[in-house]
Amino acid sequence: MNLIIKGVLVMVMLVLNPHFAFANVKDEAQIKTIVESVGTLADTNNYESLEKLYAPEIQVDYRSLSGGDIELKSPRALMTQWASVLPGFDVTRHEISDIKVSANGVTATATASVVADHYVGSLFWQVRGKYTYRFVKDAAIWLITAHKFELLEESGTRDVFAVAVENAKQNPPNYLIRHNSQKTVSKFVEAIEDQHPASIAGLLSDDGAIFESTHLATINKKIGKTKITIDYMRNARNVGKNRMIYTMKDPNLILIETRSKLEESHLEKKAANCFVALIHLENDKVKMIREYS
């Protein structure tokens, strides 16, 4: 009898508010696509796109697989962790099925079955389990706020991980190279701003670093970390704290733009200073700098 009453109430809701039903169907479709995409994007090492599926802070629970505690991570920290292992496999495949979604306004939960295969060399490891995701709706977009895996069964050997980690270390994916490039360039610009010669020199490549500056059709060129460091110390740039760092298709290329205000006491006015540079890196060191003004 209770089931009949609930069914009647649901039908009344749908008749009175068909938009509510349509919205729920769209939400369910979007959430199912996200759940499917997590596995597909991980298998194709597309961490830039995968990162965008997550909220700014995620609760990650893999205790049934690897022990430890529930962790709170940023999307970048989670992607960095995965990108340090998964690209080292020859092939991974996450087969997702039986997705169930429960959406309620701006929050939702989804569960799914997963069979994940991992191949590297002659080694193989398969894990079967269940994913549970929690979501929040932000500006019509659903984002993952919690990601839990429950282990049900495994076969093969976990020795695959040691090999995969070493492979990924020897041949890191563009995702990791790109973010390491961003970190190096940020440190380099801070060293220029702080006028710290040891830090500037320490971030320049030992192997023939090159500096080029273009100003009013005049090209100033310096070769070698010592000459470049001296140039930055003699001709200080007010690179400013408000900087924009743009990544490129080549993960070793970074375009940086900063704007600051220069005090010109003798003119009794302030002038805007724009610092633009294209920086090429090798092995996390600055190899070439091209400044534009």
Results as ranks from 00 to 15, higher is better:
V136F: 08
L53R: 00
S186C: 10
S205E: 11
E263K: 12
L204N: 01
K169P: 07
S155D: 09
F188I: 07
R259I: 05
G39Y: 07
L152F: 05
K241N: 15
M11Q: 06
A236F: 07
L72I: 05
S84D: 06
G105A: 03
I279H: 10
S181E: 00
H118S: 09
A140N: 05
M244V: 15
L86N: 12
V160R: 00
E263Q: 14
N235T: 06
L72F: 06
A277W: 00
A116R: 08
T40A: 13
F89P: 02
V91Q: 09
T145M: 00
L204K: 00
S265M: 04
K137I: 04
A29I: 10
N252G: 11
N174R: 02
T218Q: 09
S260A: 15
F22H: 12
E95L: 13
I177H: 05
L16G: 10
I256K: 01
K183E: 05
F211M: 03
D250Y: 09
V25W: 09
E282D: 12
T132W: 09
A146Y: 00
R243M: 02
W82L: 14
L50E: 10
T218F: 08
V115K: 01
D98M: 11
S122Q: 14
E193R: 09
V85Y: 09
V8N: 14
R290C: 02
L262F: 02
T132R: 13
V8W: 11
I230M: 06
T111M: 07
R134M: 14
I279F: 05
H179S: 04
T111L: 07
S102D: 14
L41D: 07
V120P: 02
Q30M: 15
V8I: 12
A217E: 10
M244Y: 11
W125Q: 05
V185A: 09
S213F: 03
A112G: 03
G224T: 00
V163T: 14
P75N: 07
F89H: 01
G67F: 04
R158L: 08
L123T: 13
S66V: 12
A21M: 11
S122P: 13
G121I: 03
A271H: 12
K183F: 06
G121Y: 09
A191D: 00
H266W: 15
T218N: 10
S293D: 13
A21S: 14
D117W: 04
T109L: 12
M1Y: 07
D61A: 06
T145F: 01
K52C: 05
D61E: 10
R290T: 09
V165T: 14
